[in-house]
Write a protein that binds this DNA or RNA. Structure first.
Length: 564
RNA sequence: CGCAGGGUAGAGCAGUCCGGUAGCUUGCCAGGCUCAUAACCUGGAGGUCGUGUGGUUCAAAUCCCACCCCUGCAACCA
């Protein structure tokens, strides 16, 4: 059986993640991983914090901490927040681990041996007052084209022209504000992407029509424009020192070792139980693994070009991505979420406001798959109230209450069935097949709208059969209806488990079904009779609570949705 | 300027590849039901499909051309 390897783009350790990070890569990957597990597949879902690079060094300096302590602190905060949202990683590691260093070196040496690494002298801005080289975007000055005074060294935000830091008038360090800047010559190592361009192009071409448009078209765009060699080393202290003579005091560029981190993190995982786990089974046996990557659109070039080139250039048999799920952005009040401006909704706040499953359902049902999507509390409340409370929650509640009143807290025996049940079986069999097809294709919005239809079919069945009337005249058929409905709660739980794990768990417990969600493989004719008659169930309070209009208004003010 | 994605009822989306009665959810209106969380079920109104008295075609949301608007990206921001 093919194993399922799943990764989501590694969140940068600096600062705290927001809903955009969650929906862009972490949550869809988790839903997909859970779905595969429910199907009974062997799954490995790894993720972790991306820790190297200038922002970590600068952030640590600001908090007066050593960089490694700083990264550990934020790594732990990430872990805590993701736990709150029930992200079920098999392992959540770090790109700064020893294991990642080992794999990074191994890959670098192979690339070097194969002639994919070349030395080159470049000009780089050095700031004596900051005591460091500055990345282009850390230099600010006046744009020579439009006169905009806050143009950054890589691009002017105002006129969008691409710049070189040396083009800027009155350049200053973004960090210290110092205008005492030097241009220094420095030697660096470059990955020779042009050498592998043709091979990459052929490979991407095989993904046409399979990958989401955004993933294929962004990759093709880069290839069409022609690949350029790419620097993979930096003049920083924080990072893996470069194992090559003359470069020992430099480190690898964060974008070189970050995607390799998927492999390094897998090794962290397998090193914990070396007798049972082997990272090579996942990364060096490509025919036995299906690899699915999740990421926001900004990450697509790195995962379609740089990372595959890095792996292919080694000449070794590394696993490369089979399916790449690229997501657009989630916006807030018409603008981007922003870490630096703390604009939008951050995970620690989100989880204090509502249970994880409310967010998980909304985010997946409204995932920015084909276009950027806007988050608003009005919309959030509308969806939670309608889909979760009215459609699903109310179905469960009415069925449990009616059964309790007429048959006590146990599953009534299902007797002779009628056309109503046959119709229900047929409807559900079809909808479940649709739902599975969408989940297999990672079409989350369509999957969620189908899941919702499945829930609606429960209410339809109740409305049509009118058990509250039937029990007065035909107790036996009343038992059949409510018994069937209780079995539907189990069905809904198993189907909803990937997106709402906590709620699904509660639902399964309510009707005394299996503890671990399992995909329904039988036809409904069989499946909806499987809860044994007489099995006790637990009366319960409603699973969801509505978000009232006053609350929505409070939230809008609290998170500055209206003035943002 | 270039490239990519998007522009379809009040709102949020599908349909566009492969042309053939414009669909779904929500909101609104009416009816049904009264087991249930003022909920559920059914029906209805609401759209010149960004613009062009553009092109192709028997037929265009869909293909072609031009233009406008929104979002994002451009390799040292992860």
């Amino acid at each position: 059986m093919t194993k399922q390897l799943i990764t989501s783009a590694l969140p940068y350790v600096n600062g705290l993640p927001h809903l955009g990070h969650l929906v862009g890569c972490l949550l869809p990957a988790d839903v997909y991983a859970r779905y595969q597990r429910v199907l009974g597949e062997e799954v490995l879902y790894v993720c972790g914090t991306d820790e190297h690079g200038t922002p970590s060094e600068v952030g640590a300096a600001k908090e007066n901490m050593p960089v490694d302590e700083y990264c550990k602190k934020y790594h732990d905060l990430h872990v805590e927040m993701y736990r709150g949202f029930n992200l079920g990683f098999d392992y959540f590691g770090r790109t700064s681990s020893d294991q990642n260093k080992e794999i990074t070196y191994r890959i670098f040496h192979a690339l070097d041996k194969n002639g994919f690494i070349e030395e080159k002298t470049t000009k780089q801005v050095y700031s004596p007052d900051d005591g460091r080289y500055l990345p282009d975007s850390y230099v600010m000055g006046t744009c020579p084209h439009c006169g905009y005074e806050k143009a950054k060294g890589d691009q002017c935000e105002n006129c969008t022209k691409i710049l070189d830091p040396t083009d800027l008038i009155n350049p200053k360090s973004v960090l210290s504000g110092s205008s005492n800047l030097e241009i220094r010559e420095t030697r660096h190592l470059f990955l020779q992407l042009p050498k592998i361009e043709a091979e990459l192009d052929q490979w991407i071409e095989t993904k046409k029509g399979l990958w989401p448009d955004i993933a294929y078209s962004i990759a093709k765009k880069w290839l069409k424009e022609g690949l350029k060699e790419r620097g993979i080393t930096r003049d920083l202290k924080w990072g893996f020192s470069v194992p090559k003579e003359g470069f020992e005091n430099k480190v690898f560029y964060v974008w070189f070792d970050a995607p390799i981190g998927y492999i390094g993190i897998t090794k962290q995982w397998s090193d914990e139980k070396p007798t049972e786990r082997n990272w090579e089974d996942w990364w060096l046996k490509p025919d036995e693994v299906r690899y699915t990557e999740f990421m926001g659109k900004d990450n697509i070039p790195y995962h379609t070009i740089s990372f595959p080139a890095t792996l292919k250039g080694t000449g070794e048999n590394w696993k490369t991505v089979d399916f790449l799920k690229g997501m657009n952005y989630l916006n807030f009040a018409g603008g981007k979420f922003s870490k630096s401006a703390h604009r939008g909704i951050f995970l620690d706040d989100a989880i204090r406001e509502f249970p994880a499953d409310y967010w998980r359902y909304w985010l997946i049902a409204n995932a920015p798959e084909s276009d950027d999507t806007n988050f608003s509390f009005d919309q959030f409340a509308a969806v939670v109230n309608k889909d979760l409370n009215d459609v699903l929650g109310n179905f469960i509640n009415r069925v449990l209450k009616m059964t309790e009143k007429n048959f006590g807290c146990q599953v009534p025996a299902i007797g002779a069935i009628t056309e109503n049940e046959k119709e229900l079986y047929q409807t559900l069999d079809n909808l479940i097949a649709d739902y599975k097809r969408y989940m297999d294709g990672l079409e989350f919005r369509k999957a969620m709208s189908t899941l919702r239809e499945i829930w609606v079919s429960g209410n339809n069945y109740i409305a049509k059969t009118e058990p509250w009337k039937v029990v007065k005249t035909n107790l036996e058929y009343g038992a059949t209806i409510l018994g069937t409905a209780l079995n539907m709660i189990r069905l809904f739980a198993n189907l909803s488990a990937p997106v709402m794990p906590e709620t699904a768990q509660k639902m399964l417990a309510l009707v005394g079904a299996e503890k671990t969600p399992v995909w329904p493989t039988e036809k409904m004719e069989t499946y909806l009779k499987e809860l044994p008659a007489g099995k006790a169930f637990t009366p319960s309070d409603p699973l969801f609570q509505k978000i009232l209009p006053e609350r929505v208004e409070e939230l809008k003010i609290k998170y500055k949705e209206t003035e943002a």
